[in-house]
């Protein structure tokens, strides 16, 4: 296959960027999208160009590091798929493919397709945990957890923290990321003591990072590789409101 890639090139955070076109030949349909970028970079390296910087690590869809907007869609056209698991057989020979970084004010571009997603870490830091110091735990079976609660918690905990929800959201909101963590911990008995404080603190940090609000459009769930459902955002809204109610009752 032969593909034309139009890629966002930006040397540095403080410099302007632009789309640049590259032709890549001899692409096998069994190649992953990132392997095509590898091929392009090999070519650029040997022929005096600057290789394209992009984030990637596990290349099996779980680490959440890869982050490309392909033809306007975060992680490309396949549902429930990260960029690293997107194969070229889903494209056509001769196609022009636009590749851009996640765009959000809270995710500044570091270089080319690499962005800074540390805002998501700071949201977790604000309260996305259960305070359980090492050694203080009771026996694992001391508290039973109904299977449906455990399953719901797992569905939420499957979030890989890639930030595609933000990249796809017309409001630049990280509510799906936020909702997933609040639902994960809020569904389990271990997460109850800090449930109110967690929701309030995480929402405050989310807004302080400059993410927008959620208007329930649902673009985030369409691109989410982990299949986090929209109702987890509603869970976040619920927990914030009940947290405020409990707080004012004190």
């Amino acid at each position: 296959m032969k593909i034309t890639l139009r890629i966002w090139r930006q040397h540095h955070q403080d410099q302007p960027g632009a789309m640049e076109a590259y032709e890549v030949d001899e692409i096998s349909p069994d190649m992953s999208f990132l392997e095509v970028l590898d091929l392009l970079n090999e070519d650029l390296t040997l022929n005096g160009g600057e290789p394209v910087a992009f984030d990637h690590d596990c290349r099996e869809g779980i680490c959440g590091m890869c982050s490309l907007v392909i033809n306007g869609l975060a992680h490309g056209p396949e549902a429930l798929t990260t960029t690293c698991q997107l194969y070229m057989r889903h494209f056509e020979d001769g196609q022009v493919i636009d590749v851009e970084p996640w765009r959000s004010t809270a995710f500044p571009v570091i270089r080319d397709l690499v962005v800074d997603r540390s805002a998501l870490d700071r949201i977790i830091e604000a309260g996305g945990y259960v305070s359980a110091p090492t050694g203080a735990a009771a026996d694992a079976n001391a508290v039973t957890v109904p299977k449906k609660d455990a399953d719901r918690a797992f569905d939420a905990a499957a979030c890989i923290g890639c930030g595609a929800c933000v990249a796809a959201c017309p409001n630049g909101s990280a509510s799906l990321f936020l909702g997933a963590k609040i639902t994960h911990l809020g569904s389990l008995p271990q997460g109850q003591p800090e449930r109110d404080e967690r929701a309030l603190a995480m929402v405050e940090q989310h807004d302080a990072e400059g993410f927008g609000g959620c208007t329930q459009i649902g673009e985030c769930t369409a691109v989410c590789p982990a299949g986090i459902p929209l109702d987890m955002i509603s869970q976040l809204n619920h927990d914030v409101l009940s947290g405020l109610k409990h707080q004012s009752g004190q």
């Binding site: 139009r6 966002w8 789309m19 907007v69 033809n71 306007g72 869609l73 636009d98 851009e100 765009r103 959000s104 004010t105 809270a106 796809a168 017309p170 409001n171 630049g172 909101s173 807004d207 400059g210 993410f211 927008g212 609000g213 208007t215 329930q216 459009i217 649902g218 673009e219 769930t221 369409a222 691109v223």
Partner: peptide, 30 residues
């Protein structure tokens, strides 16, 4: 806030002209 979060671009903040309507947003929602 949405405009600030997306540098004013909203749902159309990407350079590409492909898939500008997103994947599943309804006309009503946007």
């Amino acid at each position: 806030r949405s405009r600030a979060a997306t540098a004013g671009g909203g749902g159309w903040r990407y350079q590409t002209t492909q898939n500008r309507r997103g994947v599943q947003r309804s006309y009503a929602s946007f």
